Simulated scan of single mutants.
Amino acid sequence: MLIALPGIQARLGDTLAEAWSNLRSQGRRSALALLGIMIGTASIIAMLNGGHMAQRESLKLFAKLGVDMLQIGSAPTGDRPALLSQAAIDALARTDPDVIEAVPLANGRAAARTGGRTADIAILAAPPALATLANLRLAAGRHPAAVEECALSGVLGDAAARALSGPAAAVGPGSAVLIGGYGYTIVGVLAPVVPETLDPVDYNMAVLIPLHCARRIIPDGGPTGLLVRLRPGADTQAASERITARLATPDAKLTVLDARSILRTMQEQKAVHSRMLIWIGAVSLLVGGIGVMNVMLMSVMERQREIGLRAATGATPTDIRILFLLEAVLLTIAGGAIGSALGAAIAWVIAHSSGWDFALAPWTLALGPAAAGGMGLVFGLYPAITASRLNPIEALRAD
């Protein structure tokens, strides 16, 4: 249906309604152009939200300990054990301005037996401060107290307790478990722990015992590593160098895991992948924009008589440009809106298949229609100018 524009005073609402009506009248052609915009937008939105969720999952790897943490371990350089100085570790919080807390550790493995059941478990010897530092919650019982530093008592991980429990005898507080030839009394059972990058052991399949007198079941017995909490914002590289210098011994080679550096590396890798996929989506969006320009140019060719009639009844070149430009923008915004919804659905599938928590970045939903609308302005401008420059008399004579 032809609706002549009365001039530059035409209300924007009427022009929008007419532009939408013209797009609907083009049927499949508009739908195919919309499809290209929709696919490009969906790709970009899915990848942006995939990167957003991946970053959230990366942060979860340090949720228990936090990002201001160092894990320092030692490996022997010769035949002598790679033991660290307990006194040097204890002095770190007093002498280093960036260290809030340092907890010494020693670990090993052994078979645990009780009630005819056996399980191979990790042994982690540490002072009581580890429970607070690592935010280890209990499902039952308690943590060993400081006065039990040489007692045969321990805390079992959730999976270890279940592995040692029989059908009629659950292992829990008060149970006796034989570990490395010594009978330990279990005083607590940990709640399930989500493994993190800086965990010294898998807490779920471990027993935690006091560090003092750990030599009973751990060879050499002294600390062979430590967890260090730094003050927020500390220079982790400089702190690592100072700490390793103070703990260095001829018999041990020290290695440092830095939570911030690990997180930074993971995010940089994900950013590279995300940028690559976003560029692929941008190319798809560009191809969709070219499709929109093609549709609009075909529309100009087919509607020459209509354009001539508009010009003959008072429509100015500006009116005609605005009409065709609005058609292109409406088409791309519609594709962008549908593509944003599709991209969010794809992001949900990515989260579900990866075992992540689904979380959209709200700004990405607005980005889709906005980017697509901008594409419509760019690729709709040439057809709009072409339509406005048609000679009215020649346009009226067109078939």
Rank of each mutant, 00 (worst) to 15 (best):
Q86G: 11
Q71F: 07
L59A: 15
R94Q: 14
P76M: 11
H52P: 03
T95L: 07
K60Y: 09
A93D: 01
I89S: 04
P97M: 06
A63E: 15
D68A: 08
Q86F: 06
A82Q: 05
I100P: 00
D98W: 08
V99A: 00
I100H: 01
K64R: 15
G78F: 05
S85M: 03
S74K: 05
F62V: 11
A87G: 14
E101L: 04
L92Q: 01
G78K: 06
A87S: 13
S58Y: 12
D90R: 15
L61Y: 08
P81L: 02
P81N: 06
D68K: 01
N49L: 03
L92G: 01
A75Y: 10
D90G: 05
Q71C: 03
V99C: 01
T77P: 08
L84T: 10
A75S: 15
S58F: 11
L48W: 04
G73W: 05
K60A: 15
H52T: 10
D68C: 05
P76I: 09
D68T: 08
I72A: 01
L83S: 08
D79K: 11
Q71E: 06
K60H: 11
N49M: 07
K60E: 12
L92V: 02
R56G: 14
A54G: 07
K60D: 07
A54C: 07
A75K: 07
A75Q: 12
